[in-house]
Amino acid sequence: GIYFSNRGVFLPWPAPAAGFAVWAAGGLAGLAGAVIAYRLLLRVRLETGRRTYPGLAAAAVLAAGLAAGWTLAPAPPFTVSVPTLAGFNFRGGASLTVQFSALTAGLAFYTGAFIAEVVRGGIQSVPRGQTEAAAALGLRPSLIMRLVILPQALRVIVPPLTNQYLNVIKNSSLAVAVGFEDAFFVARTVFNQTGRTFETVAIVMATYLAFSLLTSLLMNLYNRSVQLVER
């Protein structure tokens, strides 16, 4: 079951077993097949206008791969580890500490509000005439959003969204305020025990810099893929 205490939340969690490798291989094969099927059927629908249901077909291929991996596995791919009370603490399962839960909830609600405004502003930046023209062609609202509005809105959404992701990385340093053992907490412990201030601060700076540069690189690559290609 799920247990709540002043030490956190303890809940069941799947643990890999002997057949996990075979099941994972089947899942990866199904994922690759799902991507291929989705792209092919989407291209056919865009070229011919026929309903090919690429999302449904991709989900079916992925489910078939997972089912095949489960069937071919010599043993169950995973077991469920259930938390049990042993003495004064719980053993097994997964645990979420109070500090981690508070940090996650705070960052999620705070950053989520800004991201929601970024997405709303990007969608509303698309002229209403685009929606009306797509509706006049007979497109459903879901297709209008996915094929007409979002491709144009992403060009406005991605740059400020990158800033919000970088803010999440930097704001995670506030974990020390709730007692969570983040990089700053560990760095302070190392500094108190070794007295090496410069090396400790340099490692923390390099860690945050690496995560920030990696996030910027990935988001810039994605931003380049959604930008309008000029001739």
Rank of each mutant, 00 (worst) to 15 (best):
S5W: 14
L11M: 14
L11N: 02
P12T: 06
A17W: 01
A17H: 03
A18E: 14
A18V: 14
V22P: 02
A24W: 13
G26M: 07
L31F: 13
G33C: 05
V35F: 11
I36A: 13
I36L: 14
L42C: 10
R50K: 12
Y53M: 15
Y53N: 15
A59L: 15
G69N: 04
W70T: 15
T71P: 00
P74R: 11
P74Q: 08
P77W: 00
T79G: 14
P83G: 06
N89W: 08
G92D: 07
S95E: 14
S95K: 12
T97N: 08
V98F: 06
L103A: 04
F109V: 15
A113N: 12
F114T: 09
R120E: 01
R120Q: 05
Q124S: 09
S125T: 02
A134F: 06
L139I: 04
L139T: 02
L143M: 11
L147V: 07
L150F: 01
L150N: 00
L154G: 00
L154E: 03
V156S: 05
P159Y: 06
N163T: 09
Q164I: 12
Q164C: 11
L166S: 09
N167K: 01
S172H: 02
S173G: 04
A177I: 11
A177Y: 09
G179A: 13
G179P: 10
F184T: 12
F185Q: 10
V186Q: 12
F191G: 01
T200S: 05
T200M: 02
A206F: 03
T207L: 15
S216P: 03
S216V: 06
L218P: 01
N220V: 04
E230M: 10
